[in-house]
Design a protein around this nucleic acid. Structure first.
Lengths: 107, 107
DNA sequence: TGCTATAGTTTCTGATAATGAACTTTGAGA
DNA sequence: TCTCAAAGTTCATTATCAGAAACTATAGCA
């Protein structure tokens, strides 16, 4: 059982609160891909080479819950689902950009 | 800028390469604390409330290996060890800053 | 009738991270 | 001699994340 939230509540530190949203490696990479525009499930699955459909679904649902992206289902056969960043999600561009710049200069 | 990734070897994408260094929640929080100056093991242990000494040691050693920080041991009893960011580590300030700003505005 | 396509879901399994508690080392001071 | 402090280490256990493979639903098409 996890009483972390009960003990600490909403973290005071804004860095910690941000990290609660972008947790894990795949999450940031999904953000990276969606920053250049709306993508379908299958498109993300290809560009994030190596991700399993389960993990991709998990991460997308978590980001949707946090309000970082929206999921639009088109009632077609075969199904079409599009993922788009919200304003909140697009604002994370600064974080992804900072990572990219650091990675370019120091790694 | 190129956000696409490559299948073989060292990732082409600079975001991915950056994420190889700052992996996990604690790592970023350690960075946050060291950005305001040199800290001792015990100081980090207190400011990162809840971290176990094993985890703190593991993360600090990994960051040292990546060249993000230096570890200076003073031959005293009881021991004193100081952790300081390198230029490479200080450059991650932009990432931590972007996280803080986003967290402040959107969470 | 069977095939295809997309966007998943389900179940099982494994790797990595992190936790908690107890223990270690060493010299100085009571 | 006993105790204390700092910075760990060690061991056992749990939590979390991720992966592989198989399965589902449905309409259009040949």
């Amino acid at each position: 059982m996890n009483f972390e939230n009960q003990i600490h509540g909403r973290p005071e530190c804004t860095v910690e609160r941000a990290l609660d949203v972008i947790d894990g490696k795949w999450t940031t990479l999904i953000l990276r891909d969606l920053l250049s525009g709306t993508r379908r499930f299958g498109e993300l699955r290809s560009s994030l080479s190596g991700i399993s459909p389960k993990t991709l679904t998990d991460r997308l649902r978590a980001l949707e819950t946090q309000g970082v992206l929206t999921r639009q289902v088109f009632p077609e056969i075969p199904p079409r689902v599009e993922y788009t960043l919200t304003d909140k999600g697009r604002a994370l561009g600064s974080v992804v950009h900072a990572l990219a710049e650091w990675g370019a200069q120091w790694t």
